[in-house]
């Protein structure tokens, strides 16, 4: 296992209401680690606390209790210096849900340059990073375009390039595919996979199960509690349990689970459609029932 990049130890978080009192905890006693180069999906229904979790990992929020360690820097509820915050944000980038709300400039390449400019890099270095980041997301041809003329998926790719230009070790995608059409979603997923192959740690927060199964590891959050942590196959083994969390399993896995309940002994994991077909055929042709 690679080095730990982000570690949460018994993290609790509750929002403050207008009077300054803490409301019911949005996150309760959460512990897990994100390792270098890992690809994790975090799933949970709306309001389960998964976005709060993302905001903690990027220091938009600080834990109310417990400890958060990011790249060796320990973070508790004590006030942080600006330098520490900047150091963490260089390491962990974040792509948000609404692409319109994260593009700053009126030209694509200027927007990608925004992060490196804040880091105080030289103009030559920024140019280099803008070029390579746009290449990485396949948006080089649009360098001179105005963001509002791009499609949702393209805007989101520009936002990813903007984060990449800061050379982080991990990117958190906070429901970054939720507002996109199927093509845009496919493009973003493909980009995530490519970044993962290049060694970037990816944390993808989503409620599309078909996207979550692309990850190496899935965390399930329900009402502020981390209820499951394992490979996609482990997590989706029991559709009934997943449904209890207000989620669903991919149709293929659902089908196989239903058949198993009826006593049909299909083996193997069936998260992807092709695996599902293969396992059902193996069962039917295997002669176990004839």
């Amino acid at each position: 296992m690679n080095k730990e990049l982000i570690t949460l130890r018994h993290v609790m978080f509750s929002y403050e209401n207008d009077e300054g009192a803490h409301t019911e905890a949005a996150l309760k006693d959460i512990s897990f680690s994100v390792h270098e180069g890992e690809y994790i999906a975090i799933i949970g229904h709306n309001g389960s606390g998964k976005s709060t979790l993302a905001k903690l990992m990027n220091l938009i929020l600080q834990p109310t209790e417990g400890e958060l360690v990011i790249d060796g820097i320990s973070i508790t509820n004590a006030p942080l210096s600006d330098d520490t915050i900047l150091q963490v944000r260089r390491k962990v980038g974040m792509v948000f849900q609404n692409p319109d709300n994260q593009l700053v400039a009126t030209i694509v390449e200027e927007d990608v340059a925004f992060g490196p400019e804040n880091l105080g890099l030289t103009s030559e270095e920024i140019a280099l990073r803008v070029k390579s980041s746009l290449e990485m997301v396949g948006m080089t041809d649009y360098a001179g375009h105005a963001p509002h003329k791009l499609s949702g998926g393209q805007k989101q790719r520009v936002a990813i390039a903007g984060v990449l230009a800061m050379r982080p070790a991990c990117i958190i995608f906070d429901e970054s595919t939720a507002m996109l059409d199927p093509q845009g979603r496919k493009d973003i997923l493909a980009t995530m996979k490519r970044l993962h192959q290049e060694g970037m740690a990816i944390v993808h927060i989503t409620h599309h199960m078909s996207e979550a199964i692309e990850a190496e590891r899935i965390l399930v959050v329900d009402d502020g509690v981390l209820v499951d942590d394992g490979t996609p196959e482990d997590v989706f083994r029991s559709p009934a349990r997943i449904c209890n969390f207000g989620l669903e399993v991919p149709q293929g896995a659902d089908l196989v689970a239903r058949l198993r309940q009826k006593g049909v002994k299909i083996e193997g994991d069936c998260l992807r459609a092709d695996d599902c077909v293969r396992e059902i055929l193996a069962f039917l042709k295997g002669g176990t029932f004839r």
Binding site: N58, I60, D82, L86, R89, R90, G93, M94, E109, E110, A113, F114, G115, P116, E117, N118, L119, G120, L121, T122, S123, I126, A127, V130, G162, V163, M166
Partner: peptide
């Protein structure tokens, strides 16, 4: 999140 902290210490692309 993209490390913006005002104009101080900020450089320019162009």
């Amino acid at each position: 999140c993209r490390c913006y902290h005002g104009g101080e210490g900020r450089t320019k692309y162009r």
